[in-house]
Computed example of a mutant assay.
Amino acid sequence: MSSSPIFCAIDRPDPAGALTLARSLNGVVGGVKLGLEFFCASGPAGVRTVGEAGLPIFLDLKLHDIPNTVAGAVRSALALEPAMLTLHAAGGRAMLEAAVAAKREAGAATWLLAVTVLTSLDDGDLADTGISGDAGAQVERLARLAVAAGVDGLVCSPHEIARLRRNLPADVKLVVPGIRPAGPSGDDQKRVMTPQEALAAGADVLVVGRPITVAADPAAAAAALLGSGPSR
């Protein structure tokens, strides 16, 4: 199995196609991420199918509900033995603590990750939702809340990595989407960085989707990512 810090986001709904892609990446990436599109279409059975590729799975469900409901969802998701599982930090302290308690009761090794601010949002988008200040300040506010509640790590954009490393305990895991090769990306990610820049800033895991999945040779594209130059 590869020791690469890259997890490939498989943003497609079909288990067979997802499994084929995952198998092609075995030995090249560190794991694969399955999100809401896949889970809503294929459910737990689909996750188990992709697991046949032998790669760790990042189950990106971004759970956000009342504490009891999220705790139950965490218990159910842990039965799939994901390497990582997400919930929204904005769900509040009680919700986060309920999720952490459910994970501890299960004795799971899964990293429970709190999502701070989606990488598709910038300062203007946050202002539209009534949140004043810059995205970095909101990320740090939610990150502190989540870490105090006992999560294993955080999902943040690459532009907040250095700030969080300065202000949070060193053992907090940072899982970072918004990773792109050098040059224009032309997609909906607004706060991006190259793989080398993100790792140098202190990221533990890099989540990469389209630069790998739409390539003619996904495995070659994944292998080439860690040689990317500086961002624009």
Rank of each mutant, 00 (worst) to 15 (best):
Arg48Leu: 12
Ala94Ser: 14
Leu21Pro: 09
Ala16Pro: 11
Ala79Gln: 13
Leu168Asp: 02
Ala101Arg: 15
Ile57His: 10
Glu52Phe: 11
Lys62Met: 04
Val155Arg: 05
Pro177Gln: 01
Val176Met: 10
Asp128Leu: 15
Leu226Glu: 01
Gln196Asp: 15
Met95Arg: 09
Arg48Ala: 14
Ala16Ile: 10
Arg75Tyr: 11
Glu105Cys: 10
Ala106Tyr: 08
Glu140Asn: 02
Asp187Glu: 01
Glu97Asp: 08
Leu34Thr: 01
Ala101Ser: 14
Gly54Leu: 06
Gly136Met: 10
Phe7Gly: 00
Ala182Gln: 15
Pro211Arg: 03
Thr86Gly: 10
Leu118Phe: 06
Arg93Gly: 06
Asp171Ser: 14
Val172Gln: 07
Glu37Thr: 06
Glu37Ala: 12
Asp11Phe: 07
Asn68Lys: 11
Ser2Leu: 05
Cys8Asn: 02
Gly227Arg: 09
Leu63Val: 06
Ala41Asn: 06
Glu197Cys: 10
Ala71Met: 10
Leu226Cys: 09
Val139Ala: 04
Gly202Met: 09
Gly153Ala: 09
Leu225Phe: 06
Ala127Glu: 14
Ile6Gly: 00
Ile57Arg: 01
Ala215Thr: 04
Pro169Cys: 08
Ala79Trp: 11
Leu226Ser: 05
Ala143Leu: 04
Gln189Trp: 07
Val155Gln: 05
Lys62Asn: 04
Ser76Asn: 12
Leu19Asp: 05
Ala77Asp: 08
Asp122Trp: 00
Arg191Gln: 03
Val192Asn: 12
Ala222Asp: 09
Ala94Met: 11
Ser4Met: 01
Leu36Asp: 02
Ser132Gly: 13
Ala162Glu: 15
Val172Lys: 02
Ala203Ser: 01
Val207Pro: 00
Val50Asp: 04
Ala108Glu: 11
Asp60His: 08
Ala101Thr: 15
Arg165Asp: 11
Ala108Arg: 08
